[in-house]
Design a protein around this nucleic acid. Structure first.
Length: 205
DNA sequence: TGCCAGGCCCTCTTTAGGGCCTT
């Protein structure tokens, strides 16, 4: 079994170090390329949402007024993920909110993070850009729900990851593109990955 | 007072700067 937890946060901004907080979290469990479970929750961290964020995400202060507390939502999310490796598009962003929100309630966040942005830059250098929506459209993957809502974006990231795993098997003959292989690919330089995929189709492990 | 992310990656590079990507 190779289970991964694909996560996406909606937040009040881009930096938890500057006081930004999560407003919604969604997690999709992916097993061998198939979605097997989902978790989604708005969360009330007791902060106001800037107007431009409401315009971007559709999440309003009124919606959060009746939402679970951030502490409750993050505790539930942590239980849902357990020790599974995690995946996100631009993982540095979601990882810092995952760690910051869990640190507030004293829960460790040791999970490794696979980054679909780093992988896409290595596997699809010809893409016009590497935004999540662009990559989903480029590979004709389904858009489910409203963009910039956590569950829709997590589902798209999961679909993108499953597509990349299929491509690694079919185009580059990587027999088992699981977590360890993905982490190795994203930690190599782009040039090293291109050489690896071109010359050593069976040796990535 | 004014400003405030940060890691990755490319290039007119490496004694640096700027675009990308996430909200």
């Amino acid at each position: 079994m190779t289970r991964l937890a694909v996560i996406d946060f909606e937040t009040t901004g881009i930096s938890p170090g500057q006081g930004d907080r999560a407003t919604e979290v969604a997690i999709v469990l992916l097993e061998d390329g198939q979605v097997v479970d989902r978790f989604q929750s708005l969360m009330n961290a007791g902060v106001r949402i800037p107007g431009f964020i409401t315009q971007l995400t559709g999440i309003s202060n009124a919606m959060l007024a009746t939402a679970p507390s951030a502490a409750q939502a993050m505790a539930d999310a942590s239980r849902f993920v357990g020790p599974l490796p995690m995946v996100a598009h631009n993982a540095a962003f979601d990882r810092k909110f995952w760690q910051a929100e869990l640190a507030r309630i004293g829960i460790p966040a040791p999970q490794p993070y696979v980054c679909t942005l780093l992988l896409a830059r290595r596997l699809y250098p010809q893409a016009p850009n590497h935004k999540l929506g662009t990559l989903v459209d480029l590979h004709r993957l389904p858009r489910t729900g409203q963009a910039h809502r956590a569950l829709a974006d997590a589902e798209m990231a999961a679909a993108l990851l499953a597509h990349m795993q299929r491509d690694l098997r079919q185009r580059w003959n990587v027999a088992a593109p699981h977590c360890d292989v993905l982490l190795k690919l994203q930690s190599c330089t782009k040039a090293a990955v291109a050489k690896l995929l071109a010359t050593a189709k069976h040796s990535i492990a």
